[in-house]
Design a protein around this nucleic acid. Structure first.
Lengths: 144, 144
DNA sequence: CGATGATTATTAGCCGGCTAACGTGAATCA
DNA sequence: TGATTCACGTTAGCCGGCTAATAATCATCG
């Protein structure tokens, strides 16, 4: 029935989210990286030295989320803070050698995770899945 | 390309998750309920007086997650703790009048949220979405 | 009956999302 | 120039997920 289907969506979505979070954490922890740090790493691999505000905007996160994660990454030896040359308000987050070296490893880990999650799905199904997810996000984003 | 599609899945999934979390929080906050409390409420509407351990098992959560959420719900006047009649280790979580009265309101709110999220999707697409999500969860659940 | 082991809830503390409040530096304008 | 406003990063603290460690109680076995 319709109502049942609605319940199923919420249930399926949140349980899948927890499974994804758990699997991601396990995958990245093998390399001394926490799940939330991958997003910042990916952006810095592409363009090093971005500010917390830039990263937050690019990732759709709140700035404090980025600054705190960056602090943990600094402690973990993945990046370090540098003063911005022309604007003392800004902070540049710059990868360490270790942070840079992890690029290929973690990208492979992420691919493996995605492949494991989507195992058995055809290319069409994968594409439709992404489409459905983006529709949902768009629907929720509309301030109606 | 294949790699791009994999990236798209992770990106789409996590951004959709954040959008869902934000929308759920906004929807339930209107009624003085936090997003994480709905799951416990739903179970207690069905069977009142369950223990934290029972709820955790039924919801697939860790027990401390339930006990802390229950504490906040107690503070919010949604439930209260009662001693178990025959086993002093157990605690029964029992709805207050307010917790019971919210049943129809919150169920409607949840239906509205789901409908808003899935707007524009056909019944077939909704069913397939749930199927895809459950496949993912099953894939990740398999140890190996 | 008493000791030992299992079960349960709780506490403490980490991660990752958020908002609000704060302080500092840049920029603007009178 | 100097005051005010704006922009940015950080801190503090909430929520909701988790694990590890505690404390209390039950159950079992000697």
């Amino acid at each position: 029935m319709c109502v049942v289907q609605r319940d199923e969506f919420q249930t399926a979505f949140w349980s899948t989210k927890r499974a994804m979070a758990e699997a991601a954490e396990a995958a990245f922890n093998q390399h001394g990286v926490r799940a939330g740090q991958q997003f910042i790493l990916e952006r810095l691999w592409e363009t090093d030295g971005q500010t917390p505000g830039e990263l937050a905007k690019a990732l759709g996160l709140a700035t404090p989320t980025v600054t705190r994660t960056a602090t943990r990454m600094e402690t973990a030896g993945l990046l370090h803070r540098e003063a911005h040359p022309s604007d003392a308000r800004l902070v540049r987050l710059c990868l360490t050698d270790r942070g840079r070296r992890l690029e290929k490893t973690l990208e492979q880990e992420r691919r493996r995770l995605t492949e494991r999650a989507l195992r058995g799905l055809t290319d069409d199904e994968r594409e439709q899945l992404v489409q459905l997810l983006e529709t949902i996000r768009t629907n929720l984003g509309e301030r109606k």
